[in-house]
Design a protein around this nucleic acid. Structure first.
Lengths: 305, 305
DNA sequence: CGGTCTCCTAAGCGAAGCGTTAAGCAGGGC
DNA sequence: GCCCTGCTTAACGCTTCGCTTAGGAGACCG
């Protein structure tokens, strides 16, 4: 399986014919056919076949074409990125939990970027286990979230409090509304649910805490929330704390990097920044709204094993 | 640039030495060194170099390693997927706008899946322009959102209303709080802002409408929201409509597929499903919370040009 | 200064990738 | 039936990949 074969496959799938793909690539038709044959042979599936005047993706073909398209895209992005990165700003790669990624880290990076000239930040999400691998293998510069073990250098940056909240007039007291961080079984939120013995079918996962809180405010259940991120709803009485054993639960967010002599310059500067009042303010402000011009879709980092 | 070279590079970056990577791959050390040299030569950047006892990524290397890791991952996922997809359920690939992706489509797919045995759905986001390409090029089966042109078959599925909402006691009337759909300049939301002449620095983008509504409820500005998705906040008086020229704005969501004779079986069944009361109910319920066991991170589809 | 560790280069070789031309083969239209 | 269109196969050649062994260059240490 080569990048060229994947590119050919995507193009055939898009254009609906070998002939058209060959024309688009300005090569002979057998060249395309052969690349396709090699890929089919390698994967052990026809992927795409003629059906009358058009071509039809097989079940496997439908699944592969999306992946292949992403691969080809990323490959050209890699070439692009190298071309642009002479004299480019320093790069700070951050991974964090889902909760922090939506609500806290964007404003933190915004603040860091505005005081550090020429720093470019990328943000991804990962679970605790992935974070350890990503940091130790130098695939990311900084992890924010739970304390990490190994030879990594973790330091607490902020105290926070997990609370159960519910609408003042809420009906459904069985359903738990949470954000995707609970998918990480090592996270504080996940442990709280485990300790309460909440069964999985009683848990509804929302894309982020704000959505979960909105559903809780509408009386759809109990949200497990970071208190200071829901402070405005609590103050306005929209949500009220629910007393439960072990809740509220106080915990810490940590910053983790490699040991001082092994970390990048940007990581060191970022750690220093985290202890400033500006950083504290950004984390408490924590609204997740960024100016339109800075908005970019999130980058999803995955690790390869 | 080959997949093998990228794999070697990622491994060297992770393990911090050519020697270790060679051992891990069970090949000779020059084999690794040579693959790395080929990649360096192709990209025109050293990517990674020795710095004393360890190795150090260059600026370009830092950027490339993440992409390379994803590429290698996706490639093995592609092989995986083919292996598993004999006798696998039908695949329904859906793209939609950010608004719908978070709040409406998950419950819709949930409902569809529970009545259609053996359908597997994937969900991605794209802007209007990308949607047209994705559907016509058969990279996706169904698009939900704006009406699409070309030879595509668009049909309205639901009326909705864009409204400006604000906290009853809100202070900031200059700032607009929106979800990422406004990044698509062809979207209804984006046009509304254009027509109102809102400058970009007055717009704050949130990851989804729920977060934007929460910020509006806290008095941070005016949210441009889909009315029935904020209905509970309106009923409770947390948010109140703001009368503005051209608002509220009534619009339609459409479903788009290829022409009837060219679309997949799953796409046809899904279109039929959309006209059922179950589907209507799912769209109005529209909470975005899915049971934990069904939760998966979103799949981001990108198109290749 | 000579060992040792690590990375790079050189040279060689088999296997694939990637392209060509020429020919075979299914299906639709008349 | 015949031709035309469009995908595949066959045969061939050039280039690149990917691996080996052998040897050289640079840093570190005693």
């Amino acid at each position: 399986m080569t990048l060229g074969q994947l590119k050919v496959f995507v193009l055939v799938a898009r254009l609906g014919s070998v002939r058209a793909a060959a024309a688009a690539l300005d090569v002979s038709e057998p060249a395309v056919s052969q690349a396709l044959a090699a890929l089919r042979n390698h994967l052990g599936d026809p992927l795409i076949s003629r059906a009358g005047s058009t071509m039809e993706l097989t079940a496997a073909g439908q699944r592969v074409v999306g992946l292949a398209s992403q691969i080809v895209n990323l490959a050209s992005e890699a070439e692009e990125v190298v071309r642009r990165s002479n004299g480019a700003p320093d790069l700070l790669r951050v991974v964090t939990t889902s909760t922090l990624a939506h609500a806290v880290v964007p404003s933190l990076l915004e603040a860091f970027g505005s005081r550090q000239l020429s720093v470019e930040a990328t943000l991804g999400t990962a679970d605790t286990h992935e974070m350890e691998a990503l940091v130790s293998e130098r695939l990311t510069d900084v992890a924010l979230g739970p304390r990490l073990g190994g030879e990594l250098d973790s330091e607490p940056i902020m105290r926070y409090r997990l609370t159960a909240l519910r609408a003042a007039s809420g009906h459904d007291s069985e359903t738990w509304l949470v954000d995707p961080t609970v998918a990480d079984s090592m996270s504080d939120a996940s442990r709280v649910l485990q300790r309460l013995g909440v069964p999985e079918h009683r848990v509804r996962v929302f894309p982020n805490q704000a959505a979960a809180c909105a559903a809780a405010a509408a009386g759809e259940g109990t949200v497990l929330a970071v208190e200071h991120l829901a402070v405005s709803q609590i103050q306005r009485g929209v949500l009220v704390p629910v007393p439960l054993p072990g809740l509220p639960f106080d915990a810490l967010w940590y910053v983790t990097t490699l040991a001082p002599d092994r970390r990048t310059v940007a990581a060191t500067r970022f750690r220093r920044f985290l202890s400033t009042p500006d950083a504290m303010h950004a984390m408490h402000r924590a609204d997740g709204g960024v100016p339109a011009s800075r908005f970019k879709p999130p980058v999803y980092v995955t690790i390869w094993s």
